[in-house]
Structure formats: structure tokens, C-alpha cells
Design a protein around this nucleic acid. Sequence first.
DNA 1: TTATCAAAAATAATCGATGATTTGTCAATC
DNA 2: GATTGACAAATCATCGATTATTTTTGATAA
Lengths: 257, 257
Amino acid sequence: MTADGAPKRTVSEARAAAVLNAGVDGAGAWQSVFVDDGKNTIASQLVERLREAIVSGQLEAGAKINLDRAREIFAVSLSPLREALARLIPDGLVIFEDNRGYRVAPVSVTDLREITRLREEFETLALRQATSVAPPEWEGDVMRALHRLNTAERNPADPATLERWEALHREFHLTLLAGCQMPLLLGFCRTLLNLNDRYRRSFLVRTSGDRNVSVEHSEIAQGAVARDADFACERLREHIHRTGSNLAAHLSDRIAP
Amino acid sequence: MTADGAPKRTVSEARAAAVLNAGVDGAGAWQSVFVDDGKNTIASQLVERLREAIVSGQLEAGAKINLDRAREIFAVSLSPLREALARLIPDGLVIFEDNRGYRVAPVSVTDLREITRLREEFETLALRQATSVAPPEWEGDVMRALHRLNTAERNPADPATLERWEALHREFHLTLLAGCQMPLLLGFCRTLLNLNDRYRRSFLVRTSGDRNVSVEHSEIAQGAVARDADFACERLREHIHRTGSNLAAHLSDRIAP
DNA sequence: TTATCAAAAATAATCGATGATTTGTCAATC
DNA sequence: GATTGACAAATCATCGATTATTTTTGATAA
């Protein structure tokens, strides 16, 4: 651990949302993030904090990240801040230009379309591979992730439940893919999932009424553990496609193409 | 530009290869890299220098990167060095662990297999898309890249020609894919190409006698500009697959699986 | 009024020094 | 002889201050 310990951060945390995108939305679901799970250094913790701030929409898309202000808000020095930002570039959440500093990556409908399209390709590829090479434990992992997701409450009035649902949803998809035993492909899928979550959490109020997402997830999972690649992949593809279309519809009302 | 200018760097350059992997292979093809093409900051230049050092095999796979030594060798301070290394993580060339520092990413046959497999999937996806959406100029770009590649000398006795050929080869593949108009997919392909180049440049002495690589490239290019997706993609897939098998054969003699 | 340039302010990039953690060494103990 | 623990050295991480670059401001001239 560092010398000064955690408390100071939690305090400055709350200010972060308020100051950085001055007074847009107040309620920060910040506090839940700090569970020091092996990420010892300030830079590493900062990566997670910044990622959450961007994915959750608390850091506005396209906004410039003023280093001095951010340094003060997060109560860190420049070195770990710059390093953390650099590590978010590959995730597609931050963009950088020499002597011009860092910005939050912008969002657009075409970007979302590409994410959706690539998710369809990559995730079905990974799932197909998983159904053929994953060890038996994988099936249990999938069913557990499914159960935890389906039993999680999702109350629009309570942001904490929404955030928990998001985490479990992400966990479900990654567990599904993890069986493929291809670390690079998994990394790409994780990146795309990150990017996609950002759109959903920023722009989707609730999923459209004509879908039963729980059923969709259950079908995918059952196909997967039955090692029925064609069925599982087809369901997964539909699931991704629907989510993408849904989001794109919401999105095009709100931002430029 | 920085105040002190370029000369100092070129000098320290030569030492870099010698010191970092102490006396493994002497001949450095370093000098050619410094053409300050818009990359103004030390950190950005360092990214390119380090990338070249790793991809070319001058920085040994799996080796620890001692910050103090590297700092001295490259004649920079810690801040840009750390930042440059952080930016290479997403490319899969550098790995990092809290409080344990940076290492050159290791190589393995399974890693190479995955790279090859994913290149087959991603590059054919991109090429198929390109044949359907790329603008007319793209065809000219492809043919030019092909011509430059096919007329480049490749003399095993002269490392400079080999390096130039590598650059043109990379350029050809990227030009081919660039027509797809999908920035994320292009980024993934670029990453995979980087990783693949590293294996080729480190482990492949020469391509096996039963291949005529020029012809392979020409067929791919001609299929592409004719907008014959099936033909072009099939040739591309074979090309990638052959290169991968070839490399894997060389590799398994030399390192652990 | 608009355009242009120079100075000033703001911001980004880098450095050298300091603090924290890991790794290596060696004696004491079982 | 192997193991443990404390110390020392090496290495990594962070900070505050300095330097370089970009952006803004404001005065001048067309």
C-alpha cells in the first residue's frame, strides 16, 4: 500500500464527477470501486477509476482532460496520471495527441455500428471455439454466471442495482468467451465489450419492451454448455445484434452520426 | 523539437542494442528509424524506437526491462520512458506488473498459432469489406504498394534491404485492409501484423523454397482490385496460413512450445 | 471591422530527487 | 543442511519543480 492510504481518495472521488463535467449529473456510484484487489500502485488504481468514470459516462465523451485539474481532483501527481491515461488508449477509451494532451474518446453511431459488427464476429468465433475446447469446469462457470445475472435485481430507481447488473452482465459474457483459450481474441472481445458497455450505460435508459433479455441469455448459455455451437452462436449473434440496433436507435436521437 | 536536438540520440542508439541484450548480436539497423515525422515528444519517439527494438528482436523476448539502465541507454528521463512502455502494452509487445516493472513480451508457438488464426479471420473480414466499400483510389493504392514491394531488393547479406522489404510488406498488407473503413478492425489487424512481424523478423531466416511470395501477393492484389472478394480472401487466407506454418516450423526448433 | 503579430497565460512534457517495494544476502536457529 | 528473519542493495513508483509548447489575449495596422 501507499503511505497515505485509501480514505483521501474516496473523498476526492466525489468531487471528481462534480468538477470534471461540471454539474451535469450529480449521483456518483464511485465508492464501490475501491477494493484494492491486488492493484497496488496509484497508477493502476487510477486506471480503474478513470475507466469507470468514462464507461459510466461521468466523463463526457470527447471532452478534453485537463491534466492539472485532473491531477488535483484525483489527488495524484502527474506521473501516475499520465501513465494511467496512456494505458487506457489501447482500450479505445482515451485518445492522445502530442503536445495536445488526452481526451475522452468521442462517441458516434458509426463507431457503435462497428463495435456491434465486430462483436458479432469475434464473440461468435470465441464461443464456437469454446464449445469445442473448453474444459468441463467451464460449463459450471457459465451456468453460475447466468444464474447470478438472472437473479440480480435491476431497479431503475436505484443506480447501485444497475451498476451491479452491468458488472454481472459483463461477467456473464466474458465467462462465456473465456473457454476459448485464446488470450489475444479474449483481449479484443474484452475491449469491444468495454466500448459497448459505455454506450449502453450512457445512452440506454432501459431495454425495449419486446425483449426478454433473461431468456436470451439463458438460451445462449444452454446452447453453450450443450456444446451446440451453431445454436449458441446464432443466439449470441442475435442478442448482440438486437442490443446494437436498440442502442443505435436511442443514440441517433441524441448525438451526431 | 526538443532543445538538444537529434544527434545525441543517434549516438546512444548504437549503445542500446549492445548493452540491453549484452553482446548477443552486434549489427543494429537502428539509424534508419529517426525521421521525426511529426512525432514531436520524446515519449512518442521512444515508442517507435522501442517498438522497432522489440519487433526486430534486438530486445530479447521475455527479458526484463531495467528502467535505470534503459533510461541511461536511451538518454531520456524516467517519465517518457515509462509512458512509452505503457503505450506498448496494448500492442502486446510489453507486459507489466505492479511493482515488478516491464518486460518484453515472451514468444511461444501457441501464441504464434493464435496470431495466425486471428489474422486469417480478421484480415479476410477486412478485405471482404474493403472489396465492397473501398473507394476507387484504393485500387490504385493497392497496386502501387504491390509494385513497390515486388520491385524491392531482398538481399540476405544486406540487413538494410531486408528491413526495407519488411516495411513495404507491412505497408502492402495494411493498404489492402485500409479500404474496409473500419478503424477498430484496422487497429486489431495492425496489432496482429506487428506481433507477426516480430516472429518473422526474429525467427525466419528465409522463406521456404517452394513458395513464390511475389506471386501470392500479386494474386491477392488482383483479386482485390477486381472486387472479387471470394478469390482475394481465399488467396489471402492461404498466404497467411502458409506464412504461419512456415514460421511455426522454424520456431519449434528454437524455443519451448 | 478584420487580420496579424507579439507578448502573456495556460497547458503539456520532462527532469532530478525522494519515497516505497521488492530482491538479494547472510547470519542465527532449528 | 535447510529455514527463517533482519538487514542492505537494487529497483520501481511518485512527487515537486523546471522547461517547452500551444493557446489566448490584446494591441496595431490595413
